[in-house]
C-alpha cells in the first residue's frame, strides 16, 4: 500500500467507520456480566436450562436420569419439581443395582418423548465460581422437540459442541458441527464437520468425552460405544470408564437440583441434590440471598473419592426471592476450595 496515494481513501474509511459506529449506543450490561460471572454459567445456557425445566413440568413427563440407576439417589427430573417436591421425585431411579439404565425406567413412557429436555455435557470448571484451569464435564439440559433418536442425539451433541468453555478463548469445537448421526443397536456413530482444535491435554480429552457422554445420555441405553469421526476418520470410540473412574471425566462437584434458573414454589421445601467425588465425601454448602449468607453447613456424600457419591440437603421452606447455593469441597492440604458448583434459583 502506497501511503502517498491511499491516505485520502484511508481517511474516508476512518471517518465512515467512526461516523457509523458513533450511532451505536449500547445499553449498560455490567450487571449481566457480573451475574453471569458469578453463577459460572454462560449467557445462552440460562434460557436453555430454564426452558428445559419448564418443558419438563408442562409436559408432565419425568425425564430419566441418563445413568439413573447407577446413581440411585439422584433425582430424575431437572428443574423445579425435583427441587420442590422430593416426595414425587425419582421413581425412575428405583433400581439402584441395575447397571444398564434404559428409558424403560421412566414411569410414564418407554421411549424418549418429544419436548423432554435433552442432557448436554459441557466442559466446566472444577471450581465453578473461579475457574483455575482444571476442568470436568458438567451436565446441563436443553429443550428439544426432536422425536427420533438420531435427531435427539444430533441436537444435544450440537449444543455440546457449541457450549463455551470457561477461560478458553477458542473452545475446542469452535467451528465444528454435527454432520450426521447414526444410531444402531450396537452403538452410535457421530460424524463431525471437523476435528477439535487443540487447547490443552485435559480439554482435548474432555472434548471427545463430551460427545460420547452426551450421546449416551440422550439415548439412555447404557454404555453404548460412541464412535466419533471426522472426514471418515475415527477420532475416538468413547465409552464410559468404570464408575470409580468417573472422577477423571466429570467435574468433582455437581448440583443437579435445583437447576440453574429454576423457579421453585414457595409452598414446598427446597431440597438441594447433587453428586460429588471428593476426599472423604466431605462438602460444605452455603445458601446466599442478595449476597448475604442465609444458612450454611457441611454434609457428607454417600461415597468419597474415587467413587462418586450423591448428597442432598433439605433447606426447608424458603421465603420468596432469588437464592444462590454453593456446594464446595475444601482441599485437605490447605483448606482452599478445590471443587464447587453454584446454582441460582428463585423461590416464588
Amino acid at each position: 500500500m502506497d501511503p502517498m496515494t491511499t491516505s485520502r481513501d484511508e481517511e474516508r474509511l476512518r471517518a465512515a467507520l467512526r461516523g457509523r459506529a458513533d450511532l451505536v449506543d449500547p445499553r449498560d450490561r455490567l450487571d449481566e456480566v457480573l451475574e453471569a460471572a458469578r453463577t459460572g454459567r454462560a449467557r445462552r445456557w440460562g434460557p436453555l436450562l430454564a426452558a428445559a425445566a419448564v418443558a419438563a413440568v408442562v409436559g408432565g413427563v419425568w425425564v430419566v436420569h441418563p445413568f439413573g440407576p447407577e446413581r440411585a439417589a439422584t433425582p430424575a427430573l431437572p428443574g423445579p419439581s425435583a427441587a420442590s417436591s422430593p416426595s414425587a421425585s425419582s421413581p425412575s431411579a428405583s433400581s439402584p443395582s441395575s447397571p444398564a439404565p434404559s428409558p424403560s425406567t421412566t414411569p410414564t413412557t418407554t421411549t424418549p418423548v418429544a419436548g423432554t429436555p435433552l442432557p448436554v455435557y459441557v466442559i466446566g470448571s472444577e471450581v465453578a465460581e473461579v475457574p483455575d484451569g482444571r476442568f470436568g464435564l458438567r451436565r446441563t439440559w436443553m429443550a428439544s422437540t426432536a422425536t427420533a433418536a438420531d435427531q435427539r442425539v444430533r441436537a444435544a451433541v450440537d449444543a455440546a459442541l457449541d457450549a463455551p468453555v470457561p477461560i478458553v478463548d477458542t473452545p475446542p469445537w469452535e467451528g465444528v458441527d454435527v454432520a450426521a448421526v447414526r444410531v444402531s443397536t450396537n452403538g452410535v456413530t457421530v460424524d463431525l464437520t471437523g476435528r477439535p482444535q487443540p487447547v490443552s491435554e485435559s480439554v482435548d480429552t474432555l472434548a471427545l468425552d463430551q460427545v460420547g457422554w452426551t450421546a449416551q445420555a440422550v439415548l439412555g441405553r447404557g454404555n453404548l460405544p460412541v464412535t466419533v469421526r471426522s472426514g471418515g476418520q475415527v477420532l475416538r470410540v468413547v465409552t464410559r470408564p468404570a464408575a470409580d473412574e468417573w472422577w477423571s471425566v466429570l467435574a468433582d462437584v455437581w448440583v443437579t437440583s435445583p437447576t440453574e434458573g429454576a423457579v421453585v414454589p414457595a409452598a414446598g421445601p427446597v431440597v438441594v441434590r447433587g453428586e460429588a467425588s471428593v476426599f472423604e465425601a466431605a462438602l460444605t454448602w452455603t445458601l446466599q440471598r442478595g449476597g448475604t449468607t442465609v444458612r450454611s453447613g457441611s454434609l457428607t456424600a454417600s461415597a468419597g473419592a474415587p467413587a462418586r457419591g450423591t448428597y442432598s440437603v433439605d433447606l426447608g421452606r424458603l421465603d420468596p426471592g432469588t437464592y444462590t447455593v454453593a456446594v464446595e469441597a475444601l482441599s485437605p492440604k490447605d483448606g482452599s476450595v478445590s471443587a464447587s458448583d453454584v446454582v441460582t434459583f428463585t423461590v416464588r
Binding site: 456480566v33 460471572a37 470448571s125 473461579v130 483455575d132 477461560i167
Partner: peptide, 22 residues
C-alpha cells in the same frame, strides 16, 4: 447487529472476569 454486538461484548467481559486470576 446491535443486539449481537452487545452480547458478544458481554461474553467477552464474562470471559475476562473468569480468567482474571490467570
Amino acid at each position: 447487529d446491535e443486539q449481537d454486538a452487545e452480547e458478544v461484548v458481554q461474553d467477552a467481559f464474562v470471559a475476562l472476569h473468569r480468567r482474571w486470576g490467570r
